[in-house]
């Protein structure tokens, strides 16, 4: 028997949980709501209601989203027969925490409220101890290596940007190493697409800032399908050429529309939306394989996407953006 029956129970639960995702008609109502308060009322009809009991004001919406993300991760991790798959996605919390801790230490700013508890793979106390003692031996090898490099570099000069760049690279190197061992094409495909789209965005940003190749090399994430050398070469080329180079690849639609809009409006908002939609479209295929871990991952990512959508709406509502402008930024939904 193939061990495809490992996921049956979890996928059964996920099938029901998917029905509780916020659907597009509720999103629509939230966008059309006359103010943030009314938008939150729509949210109260969904499974977010549980986190809204002791909400002081609409400005605390972030608390709801955080609580929901935590709930989903804890829930999914509990039911998942192969937790290492969830660990792939939870790694960002570990790295986020490490970034916050390192920056707090060297920039003397206390941002403890930014730390994420319980959902990461590494206990927060372990990270705290590692940073305060400058002893990273309890951390996974690639994280440790990056952290040691940063501490070393900080003896000469404190550069907060290095923390972000170096740790992001370490995180994706770690993720791709794990993906190699997991051998699940759906997951490798997702992270490859994600890093590619992120790298293209990084290229555009750095080009705009007029920074050099050395900096771009530091900022590119490893192991996408588009090689780093190619992106590095394109840094000095005009936008049209970059567009041409990418227009025949798999990301043609995202790149064309995204970069053309970027040329006109000078913002990457459209590109970011298209890139997210592209990824959501990709993970939708998870629904077709009911006997593997795909639907569980699909749900997790759908939930993250949903939280992102709600955040965009709430930010828009609080800043009283016109409905049209919010709609432009909205991502597609999973269901």
């Amino acid at each position: 028997m193939p061990n495809s029956d490992r996921y049956l129970y979890a996928v059964g639960r996920i099938s029901v949980m998917e029905t509780r995702l916020v659907d597009s008609s509720k999103i629509e109502r939230m966008v059309e709501a006359k103010d943030a308060e009314e938008a939150l009322k729509v949210l109260a009809e969904t499974e977010y209601a549980g986190h809204m009991a002791d909400l002081g004001s609409v400005y605390e919406y972030e608390k709801i989203l955080e609580a929901e993300l935590r709930r989903v991760y804890l829930e999914v991790r509990k039911m998942m027969p192969s937790p290492e798959i969830i660990s792939l996605f939870a790694r960002k919390f570990d790295y986020h925490n490490l970034k916050v801790l390192i920056k707090a230490k060297y920039l003397q700013e206390n941002r403890n409220e930014l730390l994420v508890k319980d959902v990461g793979n590494i206990d927060l106390d372990v990270l705290m101890r590692a940073v305060s003692d400058e002893d990273f031996s309890d951390l996974p090898p690639l994280m440790r290596e990056a952290a040691e490099e940063i501490t070393e570099a900080f003896r000469l000069e404190v550069d907060p940007q290095l923390v972000d760049l170096r740790l992001d690279q370490a995180m994706y190197a770690e993720i791709f190493a794990d993906l190699k061992a997991l051998k699940i094409p759906f997951l490798t495909g997702y992270f490859t697409r994600f890093t590619d789209l992120t790298n293209i965005k990084t290229l555009l940003r750095i080009k705009r800032l007029g920074l050099d190749r050395r900096f771009l090399a530091q900022a590119l994430l490893p192991a996408g399908e588009i090689e780093a050398e190619r992106l590095l070469e394109q840094l000095d080329e005009p936008l049209e050429l970059i567009l041409d180079g990418l227009a025949h690849g798999p990301y043609a639609k995202v790149v064309e529309d995204g970069i053309l809009t970027y040329q006109k409006t000078d913002t990457l908002t459209r590109y970011e939306k298209l890139a997210d939609d592209y990824l959501i479209d990709y993970i939708k295929q998870a629904k077709h394989n009911k006997f593997g871990p795909e639907p569980i991952v699909g749900y997790l990512l759908a939930k993250e996407n949903e939280i992102k959508i709600i955040r965009i709406i709430m930010v828009g509502k609080i800043n009283q953006l016109p409905v049209e402008e919010i709609k432009e930024r909205l991502r597609d939904v999973y269901v």
Partner: peptide
């Protein structure tokens, strides 16, 4: 095997939605 497969899937669904 067959009944077992369906049983696992069904248990997952019923855990979230006992009406099923």
């Amino acid at each position: 095997i067959g009944v077992g497969l369906v049983g696992q899937a069904a248990a997952g669904v019923v855990a979230e939605d006992p009406d099923k």
